[in-house]
Write a protein that binds this DNA or RNA. Structure first.
Lengths: 144, 144
DNA sequence: AGAAAGTTGACTGACTCACTCGGAATTGCG
DNA sequence: CGCAATTCCGAGTGAGTCAGTCAACTTTCT
């Protein structure tokens, strides 16, 4: 039940990018320095987020990265799925990456206890993370 | 955000033991066969659950494992913590195994966005798993 | 042209996961 | 007692993942 460093760094990088949304582009180095992230590792994270359509970048001098979508249209759930894969604790309860469990003795039965329990967990996680936007994340969460 | 095979097998084994609670002791082989679990791997899982005080065992012929506590006093959360460690996605929001994050730039600040978000997630997971008993698990969950 | 940035793919060392094995200790039965 | 059946325990293993690192290349600005 663990969040990888990759996702953690990715989220922290987006925190910076959100703060400068609409103002400046940020360079790897700046983000890395402000958030204490190894710069080469950060790079491949930023690239993944770019390929997924969240970021744009410009090369060369004065280059850098920018958020390409509004911070209230990006959720933590999206980001984690990009960097870590599905949120579900077991793949037979994933909605975005469902896979039938192969050797489970309940595969043929009408219902599986593990699926019931883990389905609840996955929904609880997704409910939070898919409604938690970068804006909430960077400027304080809505509730309260 | 993934449940290990170890926990999955452990939970499925306890499903069997719950069904025979107060009736018979079950042997590794029987559990392994009924739940399609590699028997030597199952063994070390059962041992861990025994050391944690959930199971008792008897050696030799006619030996086997029994649940030592009532199925409505054991929660899925307990089991997963024994086999997989803390439920929290990052250790700085764990209640059972808290660890200060070392290089986080928010460590000194009054609050950390990542902690806010992941704290919510950890609470949601724990709320479910710490109230989901083996009895619920084996015989159908309370709600509804 | 040349410096500064991003891009790409490969590489690495440490670690974890999911088992597997061998052997010792315990128990039941004849 | 002797033997078989069972649990107990520690160590080992092969594949894969995690968390970076590196070198070489392309693009852009001055």
């Amino acid at each position: 039940m663990k969040l990888s460093k990759k996702s953690e760094y990715g989220l922290r990088a987006l925190l910076e990018l959100t703060q400068f949304y609409g103002k400046e582009t940020l360079q790897r180095q700046q983000i890395a320095a402000r958030q204490h992230i190894p710069v080469e590792f950060l790079e491949q994270i930023l690239l993944a987020l770019k390929r997924a359509g969240l970021l744009a970048s410009r090369r060369g001098m004065k280059g850098g990265y920018t958020l390409i979508k509004s911070p209230d249209e990006i959720t933590l759930g999206q980001v984690i799925r990009i960097l870590d894969g599905p949120l579900a604790p077991i793949s037979c309860v994933s909605k975005t990456a469902y896979q039938k469990c192969s050797d489970c003795p309940y595969a043929s039965k009408p219902h599986c206890p593990l699926q019931d329990a883990m389905g609840e967990v996955r929904n609880a996680i997704a409910d939070i993370l898919d409604h938690y936007t970068l804006k909430d994340f960077a400027f304080g969460h809505r509730k309260g």
